[in-house]
Amino acid sequence: MTRQNVSIVLIVVLGALLLAVPALAAALGNPALVGLATRVLIYAIAAASLNLVLGYGGMVSFGHAAFLGVGGYVVGILFHHFRFSEPLFGVIAGSDQLLVVLPAAVLITGILAAGIGALALRTSGVQFIMITLAFAQMLYFFFIALKTYGGDDGLVIRRRSALFDLDMRDDRTFFYVVLGFAVTFFAIYATVIRSRFGLLLGAIRQNESRVAAVGIAPYRYKLAAFVISGMGAGLAGALLANYQRFVSPDMLHWTKSGELMMMVILGGAGTLFGPLFGAAALISLETYLTQWTERWMLILGPVLILIVLFMRGGIAGLIDQLLRRLK
């Protein structure tokens, strides 16, 4: 089998597994599994988005939770205005339609990412880490300040956004909806990575000045990556808000940014499916270790340190090595 065939087989197996999650959950008598899988998919979208700038582009953004949170708040705020039938700023009507709120979330996080990226990308290295953190903190406190939308108490979304006539309250239905979005997202994502743009991004990470010497302005490409990445995280945030029917400033907290980075590194930075594996590993670890012991952080902390110190390439790297051995 060639390498490519192996990948295709893997993707098919992965897809079949995901499709079977609700059936599996029913068979195992563990309905909570559906919710778990939904969360994994949503965080995979967020982590993959971060991976585009962090893994492929080499830009260490320590503020990606901001886009996740803003995406969530777009859904929450639009629902809030829909429920009380008061237009936002007196002109924008609220909405509870998924096909309205999701694009809105993506659009707004995209604009936000363009603004933050345009400024932040004037710096690099440590300064970039710190300035993305600064912007995320500002947004975090901004939502705390918005008492109309719950302030630090958060905003309850009484009903999930509607999509056609589907019963979104049913967790299985919602899972398939999220799966649909995740598949679409990863398909687009894979195309972006393999495009000329994706290759250039990798080249910029490896040697920015050489790319500049060829007459290509790295800044524009980095900014484009940052914007796409912000939009992806915004999509994830909008889905997450729908899943938990609740948004709060916690979604923008810097520790959330840390968690997203953790998923990327754990899964394998700069790989297509790494973030999915990372999200799956971290969320399952969290769920099952919590059931097993309250002190799960005591285990997760050192595991993280060990992974950073000794396991380069994350889970995706590990799988890659295994596959190589198979051959």
Binding site: L54, V60, F62, G125, V126, I129, G258, M261, M262, I265, A269, R295, W296, M297, L298, L300, G301, P302, V303, L304, I305, V308, L309
Partner: peptide, 22 residues
Amino acid sequence: DHLDQVLATYGLILFCNELVTL
């Protein structure tokens, strides 16, 4: 690189907090 440092010391925070709780 800074990314590794951020993550490892983030893991250290989780560990320290939980250890003190324990």
